[in-house]
Design a protein around this nucleic acid. Structure first.
Lengths: 160, 160
DNA sequence: TATTGTTATACTCTATAACTATA
DNA sequence: TATAGTTATAGAGTATAACAATA
């Protein structure tokens, strides 16, 4: 059982990264490419949102609340495919930052009617612009046609 | 401050799901569509791999080891963009299932030379076939041309 | 000094169950 | 009975730091 050793280290002598992943079956799977893309994007996005005191989830909630004034927490959770229980801390966070408010729903005294504050709207606009710039960076080396195509295909995929 | 209540419940009277996410800024971001796609794919993939006693990470490691015989743990970690420390439990798991073996590297007594067993190769082939079928299901309602296009664009994106 | 594998730790995210007040 | 919000909890997954053996 003579086990021949590899050149090790992960960086070849010329300084170029050797990525043995290309020699596996993984790049054949579109699902795996989607995962890797998301990891890359997420890393940059997290940094960006940190500058606004936002997490990815809280930005998503803020965006849905702005698009759907007086929506309640359960419906936001359903829209984002997250659990109702997880909404509490996110809404707490956003309320603490004075970005949204929990108004009392008139027709149902169990529920809140979520609404963004002026500050919430203003921050959302700024973050939106920052994310557009971030995506321009991420997709810098693929053409506009390819980018549009990517967007359209993913939209169809997500819509089921 | 008259807060008009919404129709609530998340499912309209006709039984159709109302997804207010389409009324937010989120679907404008390709990054968010990638995230949602990954969540959808991952849910199905997890179930699939569970039937083989594999996690997503352990399947990835098995695949890289098979594609790069006698690779060491650090290089696998680098290829998959995960931490070296996280490799330990994954390799333990794969070794416990008799899918890969930790051989001693000849040239470097600190490192292991990872190699898949016969059982590992056979399982990998079966899982690979199952994932291909899984992706056929996931991408059932988009054309082959679009699917090829999606794959090519994501490949370019991941490669940097 | 630097690197491999390892352990411990912590932090985030997610998933589940149970409770209260309303419906 | 069922639902909205809440709390507590446990499980993943991930990231960091430190250590022993070896380079």
């Amino acid at each position: 059982m003579t086990t021949q050793a590899r050149t090790s280290t992960g960086t070849a002598q010329n300084g170029e990264l050797l990525t043995p992943i290309s020699k596996s079956a993984l790049p054949d799977f579109t699902g795996y490419l989607i995962k890797r893309s998301w990891v890359t994007i997420q890393r940059d996005l997290r940094e960006l949102l940190l500058g606004f005191d936002l997490s990815q989830r809280s930005m998503s909630v803020l965006s849905v609340v702005i698009g759907n004034p007086d929506i309640n927490q359960s419906d936001v959770a359903a829209a984002l495919s997250i659990e109702r229980s997880g909404m509490v801390v996110i809404v707490d966070e956003l309320e603490g930052l004075d970005l949204i408010r929990r108004e009392r729903a008139l027709s149902d005294r169990r529920a809140y009617a979520l609404r963004a504050t002026l500050k919430g709207h203003q921050l959302h606009d700024r973050v939106r612009a920052a994310i557009i710039a971030h995506e321009d960076r991420i997709f810098a080396n693929i053409s506009h046609a390819e980018r549009d195509s990517l967007h359209a295909i993913l939209l169809k995929l997500v819509e089921d």
